[in-house]
Write a protein that binds this DNA or RNA. Sequence first.
RNA 1: CGGGGUGUAGCGCAGCCUGGUAGCGCACCUGGUUUGGGACCAGGGAGCCGGAGGUUCAAAUCCUCUCACCCCGACCA
Length: 567
Amino acid sequence: MRMTHAFIPTRKEAPSDEEVMSHIYMQRGGYIRWIASGVYSFLPLGYRVIRKIEQIIREEMDNAGCQEVLLPTVLPGSLWKESGRWDHYGKELLRFTDRKGTEYCLGPTHEEAIVSIVRDEIKSYRDLPLNLYQIQGKFRDELRPRAGLMRGREFLMKDAYSFDVSSESAKETYEAMRNAYQKIFKRCGLSFSIVLADSGAIGGSLSHEFHVLAQSGEDTLVSCSECHYAANVETAEIDNTESTENVTCSPEDLRKETVVSKPSENSLSKHIKTLLYHADDELIAVLIRGDHDVNDVALKDILNVASLSVAQPSVLKKTMELSLDDVGPIGLEIPMVADRALRDAHGMIAGANESNQQYCGISIDRDITTIRTWGNIRCAAHGDRCGHCKQGTFSTTRGIEVGHTFFLGTKYSQPMKCQFLNEEGKSAPVVMGCYGIGITRIAAAAIEQNHDEHGICWPLPIAPYQVALLSLQPNDDEVKATADRIYQDLEARGIEILYDDRKERPGVKFKDADLIGIPIRITVGRRTLDNGQVEFKHRTDKESCLIAQSDIITFVERSLETLRNNS
RNA sequence: CGGGGUGUAGCGCAGCCUGGUAGCGCACCUGGUUUGGGACCAGGGAGCCGGAGGUUCAAAUCCUCUCACCCCGACCA
């Protein structure tokens, strides 16, 4: 593609309030344009990246025995009422009515839609297994879309749904899909990690997340130093059966003090955080060590409640005339749940339920006698003992969730009556799995993982073009002729090439090439052409090297080969 | 939904406090000089100052209401 014919509107500047690098570079590089909150258009460059990712996914899905379908974006409310999710999915489900008053929604996921088709067509165990996938736009009306494509409201997703006769064969399917997913992310050139996960709103009993590793990721993952156990902090099992750290310090007298300063990072572990939650309309207090975070999933399980939400500060002020900072467990007359890490702790500090006062020297057993429940209700953290092997310790990394697999069992097939006749002629619900990949999020995550201060550094397999060719003096006949010839020769070999033949100054072309981030750059300029040479540079190299112009085609082909083999 | 912030030319921003001709940089058009890391000179086009109401002789600027977006948190996967 010649830049003079291409629609690649690059920008020098990015809005000052946007901070995520993938978002900034995709906008500046002419990949995407914002159109509404959490909704983006893909320009030619961006759409090329999307299609590269889609192609890899299609090949691996087809290899794994899946067949591609395309379901509608607009789904009838009746279908969602049947599964029960019309009432339970929440406000992320964008609902509307047509002119006749019939209810519809924009599909945030497609279990209902696929089941409604499959249940009518599957009659016998001979029709199974079946595995269908689609690549389609999804809409989730997020409260706060953010970070560009990382958490948009509309996004492209590959979703697959598998149907098996038994749990055993469904597990095999699940494993095959997990394998296919590994191949996909590997082929995209991404550094990723697979972790055990919570199955959340989709449901089911077994679930894995696939994370692109990047510091800017929203999720925290732990991995064990000894046993290869890896999980999202929300799911990770912590071994604190024989926690001794709290017993080592000796009891002190309980005393009340005026708060002089906010606790420092280091002293957080001596504080007791008291958090107030609404649990099925009952107000409860959750006690947790200052350096720990509450794991809502675990808390919900232990309390055995349907709904759980943090109490708003405004509610607190009205009912108890306290600010959040002053709340503490001593003298608090509501039910309390405490995290195991606080067991037997001495010398702790907590709010005194009075403005600017705190208790020091708290011994949990002696001073707080009203705890209703103890449990593991915190997220795993760096340094925790692994609950899986009970030997190693956890270290944490940040990740961006780009894929999620769920073993669903009969969660949808049962209520939606998706059944088949087995070999004994008896009716049985199919056993399902579902598998998602955020395609647009992969594009963003790839940039989060691969960029520098000048722009994007695409992994070869998903780069919009493989080679950028810069003609520095397009008005110079020899330069132009040489660049034109290289362009034609590379295109003839099926190499995707973006040819900057614009009448711009060299600096502009270098800056744009770095920003756009194509893996290989060839520069044709007067300066080196006198020696019959052109320049070659990988996007991630610091310096370019000189290649005889007669050798450049084979040199590029060999370099592409090397890049392919390394990924 | 709580906290903070922003809406002024295609993009990035100043002006608002203290009301009185709507400005700067980039981009764009014309002409000229340049030509290896976002050139320079001269000229030019481009704006219901987010919207509605109010105060005033006069509002981008002050007041009220409203809409939208961004960031942090909560929520969500």
